[in-house]
Nucleic acid binder design. Structure first.
Length: 522
RNA sequence: CGCGGGGUAGAGCAGUCUGGCAGCUCGCCGGGCUCAUAACCCGGAGGUCACCGGUUCAAAUCCGGUCCCCGCAACCA
């Protein structure tokens, strides 16, 4: 048994949960569940990023204390666990005392390494707004809200992190193949680092922005939110107090959106190097979700809320679409038509219907008991994937060969985080069973008194494999399939053992349940 | 010359790294079947792989160029 650590990024709590974050956390959940099936001990971390000016301001606007404000959001994000059936083991809030202490210790290590220095720099300031402005916020060097005021230059002393010192080391890190998945993201960040790095500011004046982790040894400054937030990936593991536990789980796998590429694969990695800690093991970068072909935005009002769609379609339908209906590496589109099409084609007509027809046949033709195993039955599986024997004959393979190949592909695709192809592979398996049923016509054979027990066994056993394969994707429905086949999910062995052909015990009583995926109302 | 993604059947996409019969889902047309959730199975129609040029026995794929769309720099993952 190995230890496996996976973490999402922490969503910033200035808005309600977003379907994009639901994608990220469901992907991480599928990976965590898959790793557990392999028999590994898994720590799966998520949480909330709760510091910074934007949050502080929002709380002020809403007339509540900042703590009250973030507490409310922590609850909202925590509810995703039930809503999306998540299996995370750790939920960290960056306002947790142990996290703040860890962030300060991390700071000290970087400082001890000579990577933190104080510098005064110029900021542009609009007196009208009483706020700092970046160049991109200004039009013709004026604040668009207060064009009659002159922008003032004020100078502020902040701490900086020597990002520039890590260019070579980062480039070295990117030589490692598959450090970032997909590959083109690794190329992208490498190109960015090659262009040269600038030290970045990692603190803010406390009098302007009190809502942050105090900088060790300087009463007047708090950490800039990014610096403290990134440390969560290791503070959640008990670093620095529990060095032993930390070492057994770190480095881990990180999941992040493409907007986070620089922070996760460059800044955070440089920070780890500075604190003399191992770099992340691997970082998976997912794309964004558009809504009906358009970018989701609050002002347009087309933001898809995970709670709404779960309420309408159910947890597993949403998980299935997020993982199987969107490209795993690129941007994808959330549209009601596409969602419903996918649901009908693959959940209702696919796995739902297959489960129903297989179980009904076992009921009707085998008194509801799993029949004896077949020695060998030949199936034509040409519609699924052409497998030829040494004579070039396509029709001499039995379902077992097919299953072995299926699990091989399943593993490869899962380890590449190609969830869309994993789901496609499962759908192909389902289609193959549907095809075999049509081809073998068990109802006809039963009518003329032919023995179909071997065939029924293989179909039920095939369904068991589909149930297993679906466990990380749609856990609740997969458990239903398995329990209808008389399998208690809590007694499952590792995937290596369970994926062997023939695990289903003849004589087991099956119990047909309700429809897994009812058809959507037209 | 800021960074990145994309243009493939009516729609949505895969295939491009590593050149080798252009594929998948939905929709459409025709047929089959009754174990199953109006489901399932078979067959069919539908393509200038954005455009121009090059390399090659062979290009959606590699090389050079052109056009167009989208995202990031502003709430928002």
């Amino acid at each position: 048994m190995k230890n496996f650590y996976i973490t999402t990024t922490l969503p910033y709590v200035n808005a309600d949960p977003h379907i994009g974050f639901a994608l990220e956390i469901v992907q991480a959940d599928a990976i965590a569940r898959y790793q557990r099936m392999l028999g590994n001990d898994v720590i799966f971390n998520t949480g909330t990023d709760e510091h910074g000016l934007k949050i502080h301001r929002k709380a002020l606007e809403q007339g509540m204390s900042t703590q009250e404000y973030v507490d409310g959001y922590a609850v909202k994000f925590g509810k995703l666990k039930d809503s999306l059936n998540l299996s995370y083991t750790h939920f960290i809030r960056t306002t947790d005392a142990h996290h703040k202490a860890a962030a300060q210790e991390f700071w000290k290590r970087c400082e001890a390494n000579g990577d933190i220095y104080k510098k005064s720099y110029q900021v542009k300031y609009c007196v009208g707004c009483e706020l700092e402005k970046t160049d991109s916020e200004l039009v013709d060097d004026k604040c668009p809200i207060h064009p009659t005021y002159e922008i003032e230059m004020i100078s502020e002393e902040n701490y900086f992190f020597k990002f520039s010192a890590y260019q070579e080391k980062l480039l070295k890190l990117y030589e490692q193949e598959h450090f970032i998945v997909p590959q083109h993201r690794q190329h992208e960040i490498r190109a960015f680092v090659e262009r040269g790095l600038q030290d970045f500011s990692i603190s803010r004046l406390k009098e302007k922005m009190p809502w942050g982790v105090p900088v060790p040894g300087d009463e007047d400054q708090v950490m800039y939110v990014w610096f403290d937030a990134l440390v969560n990936y290791i503070s959640t593991l008990g670093w620095p107090q529990d060095e032993e536990k930390f070492k057994t789980f770190w480095p881990g796998v990180q999941v992040a959106g493409k907007d986070n590429l620089r922070q996760q694969t460059a800044m955070w990695q440089a920070m780890l190097l500075s604190a003399q800690l191992p770099a992340s093991k691997q970082i998976f970068i997912h794309g964004f979700i558009t809504a009906e072909g358009k970018k989701m935005s609050k002002s347009v009002g087309n933001v898809v809320a995970p709670y709404d769609v779960v309420e309408k379609y159910g947890t597993d339908a949403v998980r299935y679409f997020l993982l199987g209906g969107l490209p795993s590496y690129e941007d994808g589109d959330w549209s009601v038509t596409r969602f419903e099409e996918f649901y009908t084609a693959h959940l209702a007509n696919g796995v739902g219907n297959l489960t129903s027809r297989v179980l009904t046949m076992v009921e009707k033709y085998s008194d509801g008991n799993i029949p004896p195993k077949a020695e060998k039955i030949n199936f034509n599986i040409r519609s699924i994937r052409t497998i030829e024997d040494e004579f070039g004959n396509e029709e001499t393979t039995i379902i077992k060969n097919f299953v072995d190949e299926f699990w091989e592909n399943y593993e490869t695709l899962f380890k590449r985080y190609s969830f869309d192809f994993v789901v496609q592979e499962i759908n192909n398996f389902i289609a193959s069973l549907d095809f075999i049923i049509s081809e073998q016509k068990p109802w006809e054979k039963a009518k003329i008194g032919e023995d179909i027990s071997g065939l029924l066994y293989q179909l039920a056993e095939g369904l068991r494999h589909i149930g297993l394969a679906l466990l990380p994707i749609i856990p609740a429905s997969a458990e239903k399939i398995l329990s209808q086949l008389g399998i208690d999910v809590s007694t499952l062995e590792t995937l290596e053992i369970e994926s062997e052909w023939g695990g289903l015990l003849p004589g087991t009583k099956i119990t047909k349940g309700d429809m897994l995926f009812p058809r959507l109302e037209k």
